[in-house]
C-alpha cells in the first residue's frame, strides 16, 4: 500500500512541506522541484493584490498552497487573515500562526486553539503551529485541526530538535498527523524526527540560508524519505548496555 500523508481528506505522497520565505522568488520553482514538495507555505502578508513580484505567480501549478497567518497577534486577527486568504483564492488550507512575541516568535497556544475552533467550523483545513504541549494538542484535535505543527526550536534558529521529547509525546498520544515545524537546521534532524514517527517536516530557513538552495532542498527530501522509511521498517530498540552474544544464563537447560 502506498504511504500517504492525509490532511483534511487530501492525499500527499511527499512528506516535506517547504517554506517560501527568506529567499528569492525565482528560486522557488527549483526548490519545490528538488524538494519534491507538494505543499508550500506562504505568508499571506507577502502576497500582493497585483503589482510587482507577486509570490503567488512563482509557485508552480499543482502545488498545494498552505497560507499562514503570520502577523496575527491573537485569534481574531488570525481568523481575519485566514478569511482574506480564502478570498484571494489561496484555497482552504491554513496554517495558523498566532505570535505576540517579536523576539522569539513563539506561538500563543491559547489563541491558536480559539482560532482553530472558528476556522475549522468554517470549513478550513486547519494546521496550527504550536508549542508542543500535550493538553493543547488534544484541544486542537477537539477543535477540528487536521494536524498539529509543533515547533522543534524557535523559528529561523536552525537549532534543531530542542523539544524532541515533547514532540515524541505528541506523536505517541495524538491521532492527528504531527508535522514538525520550525527550528530544524539540518537534514539529519529532519531524518531523526521522521524516524521518531513524525508525519511530515516543514522547513524554510535551513534551506533559505543554505549556500545552494535547490541542493539543500534535495538533501532534505532525501533525509525525510530516509527517516520515513526507517520508521516504517521499525527501527531496532536502543539499549542502555551491550547485549551479550554468550549470555550468563546460557547454561540453563530446562
Amino acid at each position: 500500500m502506498e504511504d500517504k500523508l492525509i490532511l483534511g481528506g487530501r492525499e500527499f505522497t511527499s512528506r516535506f512541506i517547504l517554506g517560501s520565505g527568506k529567499y528569492s522568488l525565482d528560486l522557488i520553482k527549483a526548490a519545490v522541484e528538488n524538494a519534491g514538495a507538494q505543499i508550500i507555505t506562504l505568508a499571506l502578508r507577502r502576497a500582493n493584490n497585483g503589482g510587482a513580484a507577486n509570490i503567488l505567480d512563482y509557485i508552480p501549478e499543482g502545488v498545494t498552497l498552505l497560507p499562514n497567518t503570520s502577523g496575527a497577534r491573537n485569534a481574531e486577527e488570525a481568523v481575519r487573515i485566514a478569511r482574506l486568504s480564502r478570498e484571494l483564492g489561496c484555497g482552504d488550507f491554513v496554517k495558523i500562526e498566532v505570535i505576540r512575541d517579536s523576539k522569539y516568535l513563539l506561538p500563543d497556544n491559547y489563541e491558536t486553539v480559539k482560532a482553530t475552533e472558528i476556522l475549522a467550523k468554517e470549513g478550513f483545513i486547519v494546521l496550527p503551529y504550536m508549542y508542543p504541549d500535550l493538553n493543547i494538542a488534544r484541544d486542537l484535535a477537539n477543535a477540528g485541526a487536521s494536524a498539529v505543527m509543533p515547533l522543534a526550536a524557535p523559528i529561523g534558529s536552525n537549532r534543531g530538535l530542542c523539544t524532541r521529547d515533547f514532540i515524541k509525546i505528541l506523536i505517541d498520544e495524538i491521532d492527528l498527523p504531527v508535522i514538525v515545524d520550525a527550528g530544524i537546521g539540518k537534514p539529519s534532524q529532519a531524518c531523526e524526527v521522521m524516524e521518531m514517527g513524525a508525519a511530515a517536516v516543514m522547513a524554510n530557513t535551513a534551506i533559505a540560508t543554505a549556500g545552494n538552495i535547490p541542493e539543500m532542498a534535495s538533501a532534505f527530501r532525501l533525509a525525510i524519505e530516509a527517516g520515513r522509511k526507517a520508521f516504517l521498517s521499525g527501527t531496532g530498540k536502543v539499549r542502555e548496555t551491550a547485549s551479550a552474544s554468550s549470555p550468563l544464563t546460557g547454561f540453563l537447560h530446562d
Partner: peptide, 15 residues
C-alpha cells in the same frame, strides 16, 4: 536584485 537580494514591497496586513 543585483546584490542577490530580494526586494519586498510589503510584508504586512492591517488587521
Amino acid at each position: 536584485e543585483e546584490l542577490g537580494m530580494q526586494p519586498v514591497m510589503q510584508e504586512y496586513i492591517y488587521v
